[in-house]
Design a protein around this nucleic acid. Structure first.
Lengths: 125, 125
DNA sequence: TCGGGTACTCACCTGTGGGTAAGTACGGAT
DNA sequence: ATCCGTACTTACCCACAGGTGAGTACCCGA
């Protein structure tokens, strides 16, 4: 994978911000961590119906590199790892809030559906 | 191309907003149109050093579909087309402002460079 | 007459983002 | 004895985002 850069050069601030948020699940991870404060790997996986474990880890690692996410490992058996937002992650999440509002408004306008979380299915597997 | 959907379903507002902004140049087009009010195709191309004409058009068409951009054609020779933001485009741009600030701060933190616009080169070709 | 500028369209190609599926090491429950 | 759950890692595969380069129809300036 060679741990892609995400260090510019950028055209502008939006460009730089989009770079760390780009990725199918990153904004959702951000939201999930903000909402719950602290989450374990499997909790995140269940909270984001449809993520593959590979992408979840990859995104978490990148967000850690980018200083958005803190990773706390408890040397236990079975393994336990807790993820949480750093100060930068929290501020990024705050900066995304107006965008979220705009998006919600857009969903209303175009009558988009929300993802139907088939809880039964996602728990089953 | 089959004009991809961008109509959800979405997990949340951010998801819905990211969907219309996703694309290497869209946020920059938004900024450019916001800054200048109205821009012609070739002006945009020159304003975004590195865009391919194909992507510029494709993005503009999608943003028009999404109701962010207005396209005004003047039936002249040589052709003249003016692009500008719609009300929704303007509000999206406003919603992106805090994100832009955050990104600018991040650039400062990590010491990222700005894209060096080699004007000579981009004019030459 | 040639080149450059307008705004595109079309065909082709490649890199990579993201998905699938299996494997690992360990303990507890059934 | 087997399966489930923890948190991953690895290998493989494919769709598609985005780039390249050429073509179009017209006019203007050198």
């Amino acid at each position: 994978m060679a741990t892609s850069a995400r260090r510019g050069p950028y055209f502008c601030g939006i460009d730089a911000a989009m770079d760390v948020v780009a990725g199918k699940w990153k904004s959702l991870i951000l939201w999930e961590l903000h909402h719950y404060g602290t989450r374990r790997f499997a909790e995140l996986r269940r909270g984001l119906p449809g993520v593959s474990e590979k992408m979840l880890i990859q995104h978490l690692r990148e967000m850690e590199e980018d200083g958005l996410v803190h990773r706390e490992v408890y040397r236990e058996v079975p393994p336990k790892v807790e993820y949480s937002l750093t100060e930068h992650g929290v501020s990024l999440n705050a900066a995304l809030a107006p965008l979220g509002k705009w998006g919600t408004e857009r969903m209303r306008r175009i009558g988009a559906e929300k993802v139907t979380v088939n809880v039964a299915a996602s728990v089953r597997r």
